[in-house]
């Protein structure tokens, strides 16, 4: 379903990834590892269309990502990064609801939508704080809200760039378990870059390690013995 064809990724003039070919099908939780600056984030940004593909191509359902309109893209891929949100005048629940924006008709507001948000809030353990404002919660709680926001977008592909950076250990476990369940039961492709290698190795279904411009596939044990 998601296919990388001879993909080459550059940052400015430096070549980060060379000749990357791979095909992914539904029901996979891909754990992407690699040292700082190896190009994980650049790869993920290219995957969601934030950066253009210069050489090679990314295809989703046999169609080049370049050919997707903004709306089609937003119905297909959701993206989470670990940037903090610089806004304090909004409630957790309203932040999560912004994930439904791609499905809104012109005159509707994200505040009035019908989608089962509460089960997602519950799964991430932020149901009790949903009415708090962003300046009243911790960084970790805010991060859970941004993850919930992406899950609410309800796309077949979910791309996450270090979603666990601010989370405590139990929350990390809960998140990886949830991601695995979603990938397998809801037939999603979830690609998650993380430095929590040991923990993630227990939940991932595929492990990609980016080193020296090559993304090698490894099995579980390899994923963290390479560190």
């Amino acid at each position: 379903m998601l296919k990388f064809i001879e993909l080459e990724i550059k940052r400015k003039d430096a070549l980060l990834i060379q000749n990357f070919n791979r095909e992914l099908n539904e029901g996979e939780l891909v754990i992407l590892t690699g040292v700082n600056g190896s190009g994980k984030s650049t790869l993920l940004k290219t995957m969601v269309g934030l950066l253009p593909t210069q050489t090679g191509d990314i295809q989703i359902k046999q169609r080049s990502l370049k050919a997707y309109s903004a709306t089609e893209r937003s119905h297909t891929i959701a993206y989470v990064n670990s940037k903090k949100i610089e806004e304090s005048h909004i409630r957790i629940i309203d932040l999560v609801r912004l994930g439904r924006y791609p499905y809104l008709k012109v005159h509707r507001e994200t505040v009035n939508i019908e989608f089962d948000i509460s089960s997602i809030l519950q799964a991430l353990g932020i149901e009790a704080i949903q009415n708090k404002f962003l300046n009243e919660v911790s960084d970790g709680e805010m991060q859970k809200a941004t993850i919930a926001r992406a899950l609410v977008q309800d796309t077949p592909i979910l791309v996450m760039d270090e979603p666990t950076a601010f989370l405590d250990y139990p929350s990390k476990k809960i998140l990886f378990q949830l991601l695995k369940t979603m990938a397998i039961e809801k037939n999603k492709i979830i690609i998650c870059a993380t430095h929590d290698v040991e923990l993630a190795s227990r939940y991932g279904t595929q492990f990609w390690h980016l080193e020296n411009r090559v993304i090698s596939l490894s099995d579980k044990s390899m994923a963290w013995t390479s560190f």
């Binding site: 940004k45 969601v48 269309g49 934030l50 903004a70 709306t71 893209r73 937003s74 891929i77 959701a78 993206y79 989470v80 990064n81 940037k83 949100i85 806004e87 909004i90 932040l95 912004l98 994930g99 924006y101 791609p102 809104l104 507001e109 994200t110 941004t146 926001r149 977008q153």
Partner: peptide
Amino acid sequence: MKPLSIMILGNDVAYTLGVK
């Protein structure tokens, strides 16, 4: 106003939600 409210999430994430 509506696209601006999505940009609370940061411009990168807003872009992936279909905001130009």
